[in-house]
Amino acid sequence: MLELRNITKRYGERTALDDVSFSVGDGRMTGFVGGNGAGKTTAMRIILGVLGADAGSVTSDGSPLTAVDRRRFGYMPEERGLYPKMKVLEQIVYFGRLHGWNPASARRNALDLLERLGLAERIDDTVESLSLGNQQRAQIAAALVHHPDVLVLDEPFSGLDPIAVEAVQAVLTDYAGQGAPVLFSSHQLDIVERLCDDLVIIAEGRIRAAGPRTELRDIHAPATYELLLDSDVGWLRSLPGIRVIEFDGGYALFEAETDAARQAVLREALAHGEVVSFGRQKVTLAQIFKEVVR
Rank of each mutant, 00 (worst) to 15 (best):
L172S: 12
D149E: 14
A210D: 08
Q169E: 07
L236G: 06
P240A: 11
G159N: 06
I219T: 13
I191R: 02
P212R: 08
P156M: 00
R237C: 15
V200D: 09
H220L: 09
R213L: 10
V244N: 08
Y225P: 15
A170K: 06
Q188R: 11
D190H: 03
H187K: 11
E204R: 14
V171F: 07
F157S: 06
R243N: 14
R194T: 10
V244T: 10
E166Y: 05
E155W: 13
Q178C: 04
G177P: 00
E215K: 12
R243W: 07
D190T: 01
G159C: 12
L172C: 07
P148R: 07
L228K: 02
A180K: 06
E215A: 13
D174K: 00
L227I: 15
A164W: 03
S186T: 03
P156K: 01
Y175M: 09
V168P: 00
P222Q: 10
H187F: 08
V182W: 05
L239M: 07
E155S: 11
G234R: 08
A176L: 00
L228P: 04
V165G: 05
I207S: 14
S158L: 15
V200I: 06
D218E: 12
V165D: 00
E155A: 14
A164D: 02
I242P: 04
C196D: 08
V192T: 08
D190C: 03
I219G: 01
I207L: 15
P240Y: 08
I242R: 07
L183T: 14
S185V: 03
A164H: 00
L228E: 02
H187M: 12
L227H: 11
F184N: 01
D174C: 04
S158V: 14
